[in-house]
Amino acid sequence: MDDLIDIEQQTRRWLEDVVIGLNLCPFAAEPNRHGRIRIAVTEAADEESLLAALQEELSLLDSLEESETETTLVAAPFVLDNFDDYNQFFDVIELWLREFGWEGTYQVAGFHPDYCFADTTPDDPGNLTNRSPWPLFHLIREASIDRAVASHPDVDGIPARNIARVSALGPEERRKLFPYLFG
């Protein structure tokens, strides 16, 4: 059980120090400040168990008001440690969202310790924007995305700003912010 608590704490540190601290997601600070970002750690060790855990979390989000829990990060430390397998799993998630009628209500975004954008090399600093301590699944309410997009002056510019921000990090900053990568 201590390991699960450590995983949750590491995920929270990543959220606060990297995602919010570097302003990679300009929409995360407010819900975090108000305790509306849930972090769940699943013990799933295979894809079927992981889907069950994701279903449980989406059902929980369905049952809660957005003012109580806006979004959830699900850490999956015991499954999909290979990035290619993780990335392919999103095809299953898309089908699954349609099957359960959650398409248009929720989106699932991904973060992974070995995240690598298409047409980049694994050591490209831009990949740091989506590198997390564990395979993560970000369950996002579509309504929340719609409000964020409507309120931000330049949503399309966020990825380029994020890549510039993480590319500008010095070696010490990288080791401090990403100890699981640069230990």
Results as ranks from 00 to 15, higher is better:
I7K: 11
I7H: 12
I7M: 12
I7N: 07
Q10L: 11
Q10V: 02
R12K: 14
R13G: 02
R13S: 15
W14L: 04
W14K: 01
L15M: 15
L15W: 03
E16Y: 00
E16W: 00
D17V: 01
V18Y: 01
V19H: 01
V19N: 07
V19G: 04
I20T: 00
G21K: 02
G21P: 06
G21Y: 02
L24W: 03
L24T: 05
P26T: 00
P26M: 01
A28F: 04
A29S: 13
P31L: 01
P31S: 00
P31V: 01
N32L: 08
H34M: 02
H34K: 08
H34P: 00
G35M: 00
G35C: 00
G35N: 09
R36K: 14
I37A: 02
R38E: 15
R38F: 07
R38M: 13
R38C: 10
I39W: 07
I39H: 05
A40H: 12
V41I: 13
V41P: 15
V41T: 13
T42W: 13
E43P: 07
E43C: 07
E43T: 15
E43R: 11
E43V: 07
A44G: 12
A45H: 11
D46T: 08
D46M: 04
E47Q: 15
S49C: 08
L50F: 07
L50N: 09
A52H: 06
A52G: 14
A53H: 11
L54P: 14
Q55C: 11
E56A: 15
E56Q: 14
E57C: 11
L58Y: 08
S59L: 13
S59N: 14
S59M: 12
L60G: 10
L61W: 08
D62C: 14
E66W: 01
E70Q: 14
E70D: 08
E70C: 06
L73R: 02
A75H: 09
V79H: 06
V79K: 02
L80V: 07
D81L: 13
N82G: 09
F83N: 05
F83D: 05
F83W: 12
F83C: 05
Q88L: 15
F89C: 07
F89W: 13
V92F: 01
V92G: 01
I93A: 09
I93C: 11
